[in-house]
Design a protein around this nucleic acid. Structure first.
Lengths: 231, 231
DNA sequence: AATTAACCTGACCAAACGGTCAAGAACTGA
DNA sequence: TCAGTTCTTGACCGTTTGGTCAGGTTAATT
C-alpha cells in the first residue's frame, strides 16, 4: 500500500512538459484509450476479474504498453475511481435552504440520471467497487461522501421544518433517489431484457426522469415555492 | 456451452440414493458449506474474480473437494443463480386486480426488503451478474422475469384505470421499488459508511421499509380501498 | 470378512495472471 | 547531425488459475 488513493494519479508532473506537444499528444491519446477500455473491463468483471490482457486488447495495444503508461493494475483502477469521484463531486455542489425544494430535487434526479447515462461504465465500475465491499473507497465513503450527504440532509430537514415538504428521513430519501437513478446504469441489462429494448433512447430517459421526479416529489410531499409543480 | 442453466443442477439423480442416509448427510453438509462460501466469494468478486481456492478456504475444505462436489466453477455458479431465482420467484406469486393496491404494494416492498436482508450475499451475487451484462441470466431476463413483470404491470394498469392509483407507468414503478429495496443489500458498504453504522438493525430495516412504503405509495397516488392508509 | 460405493486429497498440468526488463524505434530540440 | 527523451514490445519470471487423476480412507451392504 504505497500511497492509496493517489498512486498513479498525477501524470502531469513527470519529466518535461514543455517540449512541444507531439509526445504529450501521443500520451494523451493512449491514456484516453486505455482508460476507456479499462473502465469497460473493470465495470464488467470487477477489480479481480479484470485482466490487463483484456484491457490491452480492447485498447488495441500490447499489454506491456498498458503497464508502461499506467504503472500497475492497482494504479489504473484507482485512477479510474478518482476520475469517477470527480464527476460525482461536481453534482449539486451548491444548494442552500433558500432554494426551492422542488427545483433542487428535480435537478438532483435529473443530473444524477444524466451522470448514469453519460458514464454508464464509470457508474458500473463504482457499483462493482461498492458491491465488493468498497475496499478502495472506504475512506471516501466514511469521509467526503458522508459529509456531502449529511450537509444536504440538513437542508432537507430545514425544508421539512419550514413545511415545504413532509418530515421524512432525509438520508433515506437521498438513498432512494440514488438507487432509483443508479439502477438504470447498473441494471441496464435487466431493464433492457425486461422491457425488450435494445437500448434506452433519449426520450426513454426523459420519460423515466419525469416519472421519478413526479413520484418522488409527490411521495415526499414537496410543495413548490411557486405554485407551479415543475415543468 | 454444454447445457446452460442446467449443468450441475441435479445432484439428486446420481448413483444410488436409497443407501441409508449417512452419505447423504455428509453430502448435504458439505454442499451447504460450499454453497454458502461460494455465494460470499462470487458476490464479492464476480464470476471471473472469484477463485475456487478462496471458496475452498472459506468452506474449510481442500480445493479438490469443492470440485468433487460441484464439478466445475461454472456449474457451481449456475447452481447458486438458480437457487437465488427460486427465492425470487416465490415472491408475490398470486395477486389479482381484486386485491387492495396499498396492501399488495406494501407487501411487495416488505418482502423484497426482507429478501435483501435474509440473503444479502445472494442478492449481491445477482447484482454482480446483472452488472456484468447478465451473461448467464439473459434468457431468464428476457423470458420468465419479463413475463412476471408484465403480468404485474397489467394489474397495476387496471388499478389505475379504476382510479385506485395515479396512471403512472407500471414498469418504471416496479423498477423503482426494485432498485430502492435492492440498494440496501447491494450498496450496504455505502449505506453503512455514510450512516456511520456497523450494521443495519432490525429496527433500521423496519424504519426504511415504512419510509419506502409511505413515499412510494403516496408518490404513486395509491388510495387504499379501505380508508385506512396501511398500518 | 469381503465387497462396494461414497468420500477425500496431494500431486500435477497447461494456461493465464501481474509485472519486469532490455533492446530497439520514433521523434525531439539543439 | 546528434544526443536525449519518449514510446514500443517480445521475451521472460514467479504465481495463481480451473481442472484432472490416481490412490487412499471411511462407512454401509452383503
Amino acid at each position: 500500500m504505497t500511497g492509496p488513493m493517489i498512486e498513479g494519479s498525477a501524470p502531469a508532473e513527470r519529466g518535461a512538459r514543455e517540449p512541444g506537444e507531439a509526445n504529450g499528444v501521443t500520451r494523451q491519446r493512449n491514456e484516453r484509450e486505455i482508460l476507456a477500455a479499462a473502465e469497460r473491463v473493470f465495470a464488467r468483471h470487477g477489480y479481480r476479474g479484470a485482466s490487463l490482457q483484456a484491457i490491452a486488447e480492447q485498447a488495441g495495444l500490447p499489454k506491456s504498453n498498458v503497464l508502461y503508461y499506467m504503472g500497475s493494475k492497482r494504479g489504473l483502477y484507482v485512477r479510474l475511481l478518482e476520475r469517477m469521484m470527480e464527476r460525482w463531486n461536481a453534482l449539486l455542489d451548491d444548494i442552500s435552504v433558500e432554494d426551492d425544494p422542488a427545483e433542487v430535487l428535480e435537478a438532483f434526479i435529473r443530473s444524477k440520471m444524466q451522470l448514469s447515462r453519460r458514464h454508464p461504465e464509470g457508474s458500473r465500475l463504482f457499483a462493482a467497487e461498492i458491491l465488493g465491499g468498497a475496499p478502495f473507497l472506504q475512506e471516501y465513503l466514511r469521509g467526503e461522501l458522508r459529509d456531502w450527504v449529511q450537509a444536504r440532509a440538513r437542508i432537507l430537514e430545514q425544508w421539512a421544518e419550514r413545511g415545504l415538504m413532509d418530515p421524512v428521513d432525509p438520508v433515506w430519501l437521498i438513498f432512494l433517489i440514488w438507487s432509483a437513478t443508479q439502477h438504470y446504469a447498473d441494471f441496464e441489462a435487466q431493464v433492457l431484457g425486461i422491457t425488450g429494448r435494445d437500448a434506452l433512447s433519449d426520450s426513454d430517459v426523459e420519460e423515466i426522469t419525469t416519472f421519478l421526479t413526479r413520484v418522488i416529489l409527490k411521495g415526499a410531499g414537496v410543495r413548490s415555492r411557486d405554485a407551479v409543480p415543475a415543468r
